[in-house]
Structures are given as structure tokens and as C-alpha cells.
């Protein structure tokens, strides 16, 4: 088990290195920040000075090296747009809002999707099953900005039950949280359903029934634990979808999180902030995947020995 974890972590770190190169290159392809951030009437000399100040006049590999060296010391560099504020400070300031929203969405997906997935599998081909299917198709095909706006219109504008936007108490989280989680609710629900159906068909479930095990225990002990492996894998990917998806949702609901920050930074070609946020996303993404792999090995004993 220990070797398994070490191997997974090493693979994860390698992936982070690769991503850092890609992010660095992509940011620089997007354009020149001085053109956006300096006033139109800025002189050639002013532009050149600013470029030198931000280190943009050096060759790319040197810029990368400087960035990585600073990273190693925990320094993401200073923002271009927010005049010299360290990028890390900006990120840390926004991170709680995004994490709060993402975790809430994750919680919603788990709490709603797993039980519904089990229900529609057990009640296969009934009205429940068809209702679940429609719910899932909507969630997987409708874009989150549309869902967000529709929900906002119904629950905030028409019914006046919930606030339209901004960050505040629990009531502020419900609409963006559901908007963000809906896609995942749908996906997890469908995965749970098909995986439950597979396991319900298995010989060991038949044997459990032959033993006289009560039906609720057949479902929640013998079937669910085995069926959980598939949606669990997906939960690892969800972490990423929630974070990157939060970019759209945060914009719709004016949620002051990383999503909004990164949009503003991209528009301003604020390389240090963009690089910082994307690298953080990558870290979380990979971390979630490792976590899921470990959980996976815990749920299914066969994996531990592989």
C-alpha cells in the first residue's frame, strides 16, 4: 500500500512539471500584457521599461527558469495588473470562496446523485427511472450558464426566494452550488445506475438473496459497495470540473472566487496570476486523483495487491 501511494505521488509530481511548462508557454502565446495594461499614449520607451521591469525582455527559457526558481521558494511573482501585489496573495484571498462553492457543489452531487442513482437502478424501467433519465439528460446537455440564468430567473427573480448573486450566507450558495453541481449530479447518477445494475446482476448478489439477506442490505451492503467504485473514480475528475467549471458559474453569479480572478487576469494578460491559478488548479486536480486512487484501493481490496 505504501509503495502504491509513493508511486502515485511521484507520477503526480511529474505531471505538475509538465503542466507548468504548458501553462507558461500558453500564457505567453496569448499576447503582450503591456499593450493591455499601459495607457494608449504610452511611449516606446515606457513600454520597454515596463517590459524590462516585468522581466519580459529576456528569452523565454530564461523567463521560465526565473519563474521556476521563485516557485521553488514559494513565490508566484507579483501581479502586473494589481500593481505589484503578490499573485499568491490575490489567490489566497479568492481561494476560500471557490473552495466553499466547489465543496458545496461536490457535497450536493454526492448527497443527491448517489441515492438517486441507487433508487433508479433498483426501480429500473419505472416512472422513477424515466424521471431520472430526463433529469440526467438535462444536466449533461444544458450549459451551466443557461442553467444558472434559468435558476436565477425562477428562484431569485420570479419567486424571490433566494438572492440573485454575490457571496453571503447559505442562501447565496444554493443557486450557484446547484448550477455548478448539476452536471456532476447527472453524471454520477447515471454512472451509479449502470454500475448498480451490473452488480445487481452478479452471482454474489444472487447468493446474498439466497442466504436470505434482507433486500435493503442486499442493496446497500452487497451491491452499493461494489458499485461505488465506478462513481468514485469519477469524483476525482469532478474536482477539476468543479474548479474549472466554477469559472463560468462564478461569472454568472458574481461569485468572488478564483474563477472571476482568472477571467480578469486572462483579459489583462496578467501572466503571473494566470500561471499561479492554473498551476493551483493542476495541483488540486492531480491531488484529487491521487486521493481517489488511494480511496479506490481502500474500497476494493483487489487493487491493493496489484
Amino acid at each position: 500500500m505504501q509503495r502504491y501511494i509513493i508511486r502515485r505521488v511521484a507520477q503526480g509530481l511529474l505531471a505538475v512539471v509538465v503542466i507548468s511548462v504548458v501553462v507558461f508557454a500558453l500564457a505567453r502565446v496569448s499576447g503582450d500584457p503591456t499593450l493591455v495594461l499601459l495607457p494608449d499614449e504610452a511611449s516606446e520607451e515606457q513600454i520597454a521599461n515596463t517590459r524590462a521591469e516585468w522581466g519580459l525582455d529576456k528569452p523565454l527559457h530564461v523567463q521560465y527558469w526565473v519563474w521556476v526558481n521563485r516557485l521553488a521558494r514559494g513565490d508566484l511573482g507579483n501581479s502586473f495588473k494589481w500593481a505589484g501585489t503578490p499573485a499568491s496573495e490575490l489567490i489566497i484571498e479568492r481561494l476560500p470562496a471557490t473552495l466553499q462553492l466547489s465543496l458545496f457543489a461536490l457535497l450536493i452531487s454526492g448527497l443527491i446523485a448517489l441515492p438517486i442513482g441507487v433508487l433508479v437502478a433498483v426501480k429500473k424501467d419505472s416512472g422513477w427511472d424515466y424521471a431520472g433519465k430526463i433529469f440526467a439528460i438535462l444536466g449533461q446537455s444544458a450549459p451551466s450558464f443557461a442553467i444558472g440564468l434559468i435558476l436565477m430567473w425562477i428562484f431569485a427573480v420570479q419567486l424571490d426566494l433566494l438572492p440573485t448573486s454575490g457571496r453571503g450566507g447559505l442562501s447565496h450558495m444554493i443557486l450557484p452550488g446547484f448550477t455548478l453541481g448539476y452536471y456532476n449530479v447527472a453524471a454520477v447518477m447515471r454512472l451509479t445506475r449502470s454500475s448498480m445494475l451490473d452488480v445487481l446482476d452478479s452471482e454474489y448478489v444472487k447468493l446474498a438473496r439466497i442466504k436470505g439477506v434482507p433486500e435493503w442490505k442486499v442493496i446497500w451492503k452487497h451491491t452499493f459497495r461494489n458499485a461505488l467504485i465506478v462513481p468514485l473514480t469519477y469524483f476525482g475528475l469532478i474536482g477539476a470540473v468543479l474548479l474549472t467549471g466554477s469559472v463560468v458559474t462564478e461569472t454568472v453569479f458574481a461569485w468572488p472566487g478564483l474563477g472571476q480572478l482568472v477571467i480578469e487576469a486572462i483579459i489583462a494578460r496578467d501572466f503571473t496570476v494566470v500561471q499561479g491559478v492554473v498551476l493551483l488548479f493542476a495541483f488540486i486536480y492531480i491531488g484529487m486523483n491521487i486521493l481517489v486512487d488511494i480511496l479506490y484501493a481502500y474500497v476494493d481490496p483487489r487493487i491493493r495487491y496489484a
Binding site: 452471482e203 454474489y204 444472487k206 447468493l207 439466497i210 442466504k211 459497495r225 461494489n226 474500497v299 481490496p301
Partner: peptide, 18 residues
């Protein structure tokens, strides 16, 4: 289980793996 029980054909899949 108590009055009638059954042994299934395939021992590889009759036991719950987890």
C-alpha cells in the same frame, strides 16, 4: 438459507469480492 439453500455454479463470482 434456513430451509432451502443453493450452491451456484461459478465459485469465482459467487463470493462478494469486497
Amino acid at each position: 438459507g434456513r430451509q432451502i439453500s443453493m450452491i451456484l455454479q461459478d465459485p469465482q463470482t459467487s463470493l462478494n469480492p469486497v
